[in-house]
Amino acid sequence: MIPQAFEYEQPSSVADAIAMLGKHGGEARVLAGGHSLLPMMKLRLAAPDALIDIGRIASLRGITDTPDAITIGALTTHAEVAGAEVIASGCPILAETAAGIGDLQVRNRGTIGGSIANADPHGDLPAVLLALDGEATAEGPNGRRTIAAADLFVDYLQTSLSPDEILTEVRVPKASNSAYVKFNRRAQDWAIVGAAAVVHGSSARIALTGVGSKPVRAAAVEAAFDGSNTAEAAGHAADGLDAPSDTAASGEYRAHLARVLVRRALEAAMAR
């Protein structure tokens, strides 16, 4: 649990942070809550030359409510997301998901931006952002751009952010009929499988955690769903999936869980 030596920098603005990332030429990493990055460094799975600690950049914090969407600063913690009234009423899936991440310490340190940028296929927020059809804003040396969730998650721990870009905020549409159901062995654990459902009348967007190298849409369920056939549509949740096997669960069991959890998520979303 001893990381390799690294430099530590503490920018006070996004522009500074981008400049520092540039200076280290791709060998620096942004540090947000540190709850994914530091464990990886301690296990020597990551060994950046420098950490650019964005924790002091005030503009990256905070929640903004607009009529159809909510914008959340990248540094907003899971605890803040879980506790925000606008999110609980406007986008309950997000509040519920943030409230179910890890334990209290993790929720007090971990950030929404860090979770999205980390793109862990077992992390809860990527699938939720995908189901919501949300987007992320990034700033880099070439300015600012918006990336749709569908284009953001590339592969295991890989996003389409470039190494010199900073994710500044996350934007989610309001969606009151939405729910995330997470299955794990122990209360504060990572999901074995999670299902995010966002229902608009007779259509639904569904995404899954823990069944591949990145969060995946359950396209077959979405195609089959007609607003009333929850159980039948959920039966397609594992169509075309090649879920991984590990010590937590076999691929077969993950596929089974996907079907059960998608049904439960659809039911919960529709009951809201």
Partner: peptide
């Protein structure tokens, strides 16, 4: 050893 950390080797917490 596949269960080499407390992510894979599951011990119950107070909740369980």
């Amino acid at each position: 050893l596949l269960t080499g950390s407390l992510v894979e080797y599951v011990i119950p917490s107070a909740v369980e």
